[in-house]
Every structure is written in structure tokens, then in C-alpha cells.
């Protein structure tokens, strides 16, 4: 049980507990804060896997920009009261059962199916080593093999920006 294992289990537990609190919290502000904690835990996992660029981008884009946008919208609407109407208990139970069935069936496939478990047996993710997560290597690949998708994503951002302005405009 070395430090990597301890960190892995700690971050996994943190991510799962915070994710459950996102769903359970009554107050939307608390949900957002718990979701930020999930993103921090996932960034920790990226650092453990030596994907440093993605860890930083995850923090800046998700925890920094997107969640602040969510907080702004919640505060703009003054929703931080607990006014949400609840679904009736049968609908909630059905939702939990549906999600649980998905989890159980997919875990069962990973655990029991012969072809999948033979494929995955003994495979490990390389921790704390390897250079593919570093910004230099990723940048070279991004601007050589993936330069067309990269440029297209800028068009996507432009259209998203125009779309957000057009939808949000008061008329």
C-alpha cells in the first residue's frame, strides 16, 4: 500500500461522495460547490496518471470557468432558496432503479464476461510515468495530426458564442 494507492482510493472516495452530494443536495449552490469538489478529485486522478496538461485544463475550464458560469446563473435567478418541487417518490425510485440497473449490468460485463475479462486481465494504467500527458508532447500532436479539428473547434466556439448571445437577447 504505497502513496499512489492511498491517493487513488482517497480521490475515488472523494469523487463518489461528492458526486452523490451533488444529486442529494436541496440547495443548488451546494450542488455546485460539491461538483467543483468532484472536478478537483478528477484533476487529482489526472495528476496521478501524469496527465498534467489535462489536470490543469480541467481545473481552469471546468472548476474555474464553467462552474462560475453556473454559480452566476443560479444567483441571477435567485434560486438559492429550496423551492424546487419534488418529483413523486415513485418517479424517484424508478430513476434510481434505472441508474442502478445500468451500473450493475455494465459492472457485470466487466467482471464476468469471458472475452472482456480476458482482454483486461493484468492490464494496468501507467501511473506517474510516461510523457504523453505533458504539454509539449500534446501540443506537437495537436498542431500536427489534429490541426483540422483544432481549427474547426474555434468555429464551434464562435457559433456557440453567437448562439448564446442570440438566445439570451431580450426582444
Amino acid at each position: 500500500m504505497n502513496i499512489t494507492h492511498i491517493l487513488f482510493w482517497f480521490l475515488s472516495a472523494l469523487a463518489l461522495v461528492s458526486a452523490m452530494m451533488v444529486v442529494v443536495s436541496k440547495n443548488p449552490i451546494h450542488s455546485i460547490l460539491w461538483l467543483i469538489l468532484v472536478f478537483f478529485a478528477i484533476s487529482g486522478h489526472y495528476i496521478l496518471l501524469n496527465a498534467q496538461f489535462l489536470a490543469i485544463v480541467n481545473l481552469i475550464v471546468y472548476a474555474g470557468a464553467i462552474m462560475v458560469l453556473f454559480l452566476f446563473v443560479v444567483m441571477l435567478m435567485n434560486l438559492n432558496k429550496e423551492t424546487e418541487q419534488q418529483k413523486n417518490v415513485w418517479m424517484k425510485l424508478t430513476g434510481v432503479i434505472a441508474g442502478g440497473c445500468f451500473l450493475v449490468s455494465t459492472c457485470n460485463v466487466i467482471f464476468n464476461a469471458q472475452s472482456v475479462s480476458r482482454e483486461l486481465a493484468g492490464k494496468t494504467a501507467l501511473m506517474k510515468e510516461g510523457s504523453i500527458g505533458l504539454i509539449g508532447t500534446l501540443g506537437k500532436a495537436l498542431f500536427s495530426n489534429y490541426v483540422i479539428p483544432f481549427e474547426i473547434s474555434s468555429v464551434l466556439f464562435l457559433s456557440a458564442m453567437v448562439g448564446a448571445v442570440v438566445i439570451g437577447k431580450k426582444d
Binding site: A15, L16, A19, M20, V22, V23, P28, V38, F70, V73, V74, L79, E84, Q85, Q86, K87, M91, K92, T94, G95, V96, A98, G99, G100, F102, L103, T106, C107, I110
Partner: peptide, 18 residues
Amino acid sequence: LALFSIGIIGVLVRRNAI
């Protein structure tokens, strides 16, 4: 898978669009 399932349950259970 566990994180994804929690997301699915949240989408199905909650009524707040945010």
C-alpha cells in the same frame, strides 16, 4: 461507471434544470 451512473440517476431524479 459509478460516476456515470450517479449522473444518470441525477438526470432522472431531479427536476431543477440546472
